[in-house]
Design a protein around this nucleic acid. Structure first.
Lengths: 254, 254
DNA sequence: TACAGCGTGCCATGTAACGGCACAAGTCTT
DNA sequence: AAGACTTGTGCCGTTACATGGCACGCTGTA
């Protein structure tokens, strides 16, 4: 099914480069122009992309992908279970709450509630989070079996800011601290002006399936606030984990 | 490219019914089991779905669709332009702000900022909004050329709550009021406990490309608040429209 | 005026998608 | 406890259909 793979690839490229035309896209993908053209028409027919209306024809993605993507919360019903807990957490902290799901060796942002306070950056849903330079990533890594964490560490730890942990030994220590405390921290290790605390959500298999975090501008993250937020986020994660387990026991499904 | 169409359809069905196995999916889609099986493996290879790990194999969608979908804001750079305005609007109102884009005869939620106040429902991104029973929809419809609105009206106006406008004449009057005021309203016409005011974002072609709204629990939407919020949302939409125009004039390109 | 870029459409070739079928493993029923 | 059902997976001959080179009409530029 090579053509399906090509079609999906084309879709991704359109999303990345939109608005874009046939010729430019074919050049970028190093594919015959007529093949790309046929694929674009097909994707349009299926409702995944649409022409902008301009001449020459430029293509952009539709919201079809969003429709599909909103189901991408990993565990069944994770969003429904997590949202009330996230709301409560935001009410108590008035800071930005993130929910990220584990996917292979990645952690992806799938839901968020924003603070009303002025804040520097708003991350788009679907954002990939670093495994070793984000609180959510470290929370998941700490809840993983040690072999999995080691495998990740061996791939190398990329630096983002001056405080990013790039030394394997220091990261191992940090993960041990995380396990002891019950929550992970991030002090401007990915973006220097963003700090956070996070705690992993444990699925029925005993493995981390998601993570919830409180995100705070580094300037507001005092040494008093950190453990307080940590305790809150730890309890929130525990609540969600318990609710997930119950959903599987009870007659939840259909 | 029938197989591509089938593959995309399969992806949608997996999203809708996840977690689901081959046999059940094949039955639901009335397609040969082996074809569905091959498609699932292909989608997995391309990274759009993944097995849950359970036996028998159940499939769920990955966050790939989210990655693609976050680019689906219609106009180039709409999100970047709109977010600061939305933040300002939320700061002034402390209510939930929605950004929706126009797509054919649909209006789809693509960005939101939540209030800190307790609220009934949080809509997921990608949610389809009604054209005649939501403030965002009516704002777009009012900014459309009259023929387009008439074409929509002729398809019939579905009722959702007791206050939904299902009479074509009343809707025409409402749209005229909207044009005069510069903002559309919704008084529990889709969900009885949600009211809103909205105003359309006009693209460079002079047509509505998006809409921004302030959403309030019906109990908090007093007769005093409505025009105040209306003026705010009208100005916000005007700001975004102007910024979009400028982006196209200036060297905003890459 | 000539040229180079664009999007679009055609068509003979040959690849690879199709789907019926069979099998192994597991689950519920009797 | 043993059959009668599921389930997911893999094979393989046939032929449908995806492929990509090519040519056309168009627009903006040199």
């Amino acid at each position: 099914m090579q053509n399906v793979v090509n079609a999906l690839w084309t879709l991704e490229e359109v999303a990345e480069r939109q608005p874009i035309g046939v010729a430019e896209l074919a050049r970028a993908m190093e594919l015959p122009k007529s093949s790309v053209q046929r694929t674009l028409v097909t994707l349009h027919g299926a409702g995944w992309i649409r022409p902008t209306g301009a001449t020459p024809t430029r293509w952009v993605v539709t919201t079809k992908a969003l429709h599909v993507g909103r189901h991408a919360t990993g565990e069944l019903g994770l969003r429904d279970v997590a949202l009330p807990v996230m709301e409560d957490l935001r009410r108590r902290t008035d800071e930005t709450i993130h929910l990220a799901v584990r996917e292979g060796s990645k952690v992806v942002l799938v839901e968020r509630l924003e603070t009303t306070q002025p804040v520097r950056i708003i991350l788009p849903l679907g954002q990939n989070l670093s495994m070793h330079a984000s609180a959510n990533g470290k929370a998941v890594l700490a809840a993983d079996p040690p072999e999995a964490a080691e495998r990740y560490i061996e791939d190398g730890l990329r630096g983002f800011t001056g405080t990013t942990i790039t030394d394997p030994g220091r990261l191992r220590g940090e993960l041990a601290d995380t396990r002891e405390r019950g929550y992970a921290t991030n002090s401007g290790e990915w973006r220097s002006d963003v700090s956070a605390v996070a705690s992993a959500v444990i699925g029925e298999a005993g493995l981390p399936v998601a993570s919830i975090s409180v995100n705070v501008p580094t300037s507001r993250m005092t040494e008093d606030a950190r453990p307080a937020y940590g305790a809150l986020v730890r309890n929130a994660a525990k609540q969600i984990s318990a609710a997930l387990g119950r959903a599987h026991e009870g007659g939840g499904g259909r």
